[in-house]
Amino acid sequence: MSNASFEQLGDFLRACRARVAPEAVGLPVFGRKRRVAGLRREEVAQLAGVSVDYYVRLEQGRGQHVSDAVLDAIGRALRLDPTESEHMWDLARPTRAGVRRVAPSTVRPGVQVLLDRIDAPAFVLGPCMDVAAWNAAADAVMGLSAMAPHERNMARHTFLSPDAGRFYPDWERVAADTVAFLRLDTARHAADARMAALVEELTAGNPRFRPLWDAHQVAEKTHGSKRLRPADGSVLDTAYESLSFPGDPDLLLIVYTTAPRPVRPGIEPAATAGRA
């Protein structure tokens, strides 16, 4: 296990431990104020059935060769959901994540034909949150063809584009969702140097990125909703669905169903929502 991956595992375990209330796992809570948020290390060790010293070593990045049984027990103790559990395993088994094939920067012609036959805005998202292909409807909303190739990236657009605060009226929620998916994707592609470079770029480019990154929230991009404000000034209340391609699991087809509505006079997105 690489030291960097094991340190990330320790950071993730600490963040998850802080989010679990003692009463949620049946531990007694006494009157005096607890000095730490969530569970104590010894409480996690007790719930997982491991020694306190062993669990402390895991959080400090000093443990080695953690067993499958211990990982499962810690996941149960911390009440990890399936996405969080998968993320923990990717961090604990970087060779498992490292064998994932890096998706190509271009898609096969048949995928582009599929995109062009979809009436709603649709695009293909690859590792690092790069936009690999799109249709005309997505271009009309997002202006992808006018961007430089390196700018066609959902994380870069969210945190580095000066237009992001206007384009995403609910920027804070979009930013949190973006980082949660990027965290997940980074662990899945631990061998891809572009991931670390992207995180460094976002950290240097926007001070609002790092606190979200350090929270260690993870989430799949399966479906959801967004509000978008294209260049024409309209507002789109959108829902989206994500589909993976058989044979190319690192590529996601994102399809928006959009319902335009008039812009309410006097309602503008926060000017400081995007790049700070």
Rank of each mutant, 00 (worst) to 15 (best):
D72G: 10
I74S: 06
G75Y: 11
L78K: 10
L78D: 11
R79M: 09
R79N: 12
D81L: 00
D81R: 04
P82N: 09
T83W: 04
H87C: 13
M88T: 05
W89G: 01
L91S: 12
L91Y: 14
P94I: 11
T95C: 05
G98R: 10
R100C: 02
V102W: 14
V102P: 10
V102M: 09
A103P: 04
P104A: 04
S105R: 09
S105K: 12
V107P: 02
V111R: 04
V111I: 13
L114R: 05
L114N: 01
D116C: 08
D116A: 12
I118A: 10
I118P: 07
I118T: 14
A120G: 13
P121I: 03
A122S: 15
V124D: 09
L125Q: 05
P127G: 00
C128P: 00
C128L: 13
A132K: 15
N135P: 08
A138Y: 02
V141E: 12
G143V: 04
L144M: 07
L144S: 07
S145Q: 11
A148P: 06
P149A: 14
H150R: 08
E151S: 10
R152E: 00
N153H: 02
T158I: 00
L160G: 00
S161M: 07
R166S: 11
F167P: 05
F167K: 02
F167G: 11
Y168F: 13
P169A: 13
D170F: 05
W171N: 04
W171G: 09
W171M: 06
E172R: 15
V174G: 01
V174Y: 02
A175T: 04
A176Y: 09
A176D: 15
D177G: 06
V179S: 02
R183P: 04
D185G: 06
D185P: 06
R188M: 03
H189R: 15
A191W: 08
A191K: 10
A193R: 14
A193E: 15
A193C: 10
R194D: 03
R194M: 08
A197E: 11
L198V: 00
V199F: 09
E200M: 07
E201P: 11
